[in-house]
Amino acid sequence: MPSNSNALESDSSLIKTITEKHRHQPGALLPVLHEIQASFGFIPKDAVKQIAEGLNLSRAEVHGVISFYHDFRYTAGPQARVCMGEACQSMGSAALLDRAKALLGDGVEPVYCIGNCACAPNIEVDHVYHGRVSPEVLDALLKKREAAA
């Protein structure tokens, strides 16, 4: 929740700016949602109405798109993702996922292939990819992250 009415005001005007910017693009909804999510880290729930009005869509259409795609979310995304594609599984990524979950809990999600399958297993920490990740490297990356926080 925004802490005060000024924050609410600026959120609303940023969403308006983004929606306006893409309004004339054919199929503008995905570009709009990507930019809003990049700005806020998630899609603010109360943005749905504003996006719908700005793009001449129904609120159901906007919510339907947000809920369909794995990328779009109403709450902040994970800190780390562990690749669970078949190639990474062949190199033990299931154990890495368990280990990361033990350290970060809900802050970890699986991802299905980041396209570095010749250097499996792969993980992503704070939007940075790491390949050939051993359990020790995973621990070191997550500890380094904790220390930086």
């Binding site: 199929g27 995905l30 990507h34 793009l55 259409e61 798109v65 795609y69 779009f72 299905y112």
Partner: peptide, 20 residues
Amino acid sequence: AGAYVCGEETALLESLEGKR
């Protein structure tokens, strides 16, 4: 936006049009 099925060409076109 992270949906595997959008690699299927007709789902891809729907997605490009801004839909599910």
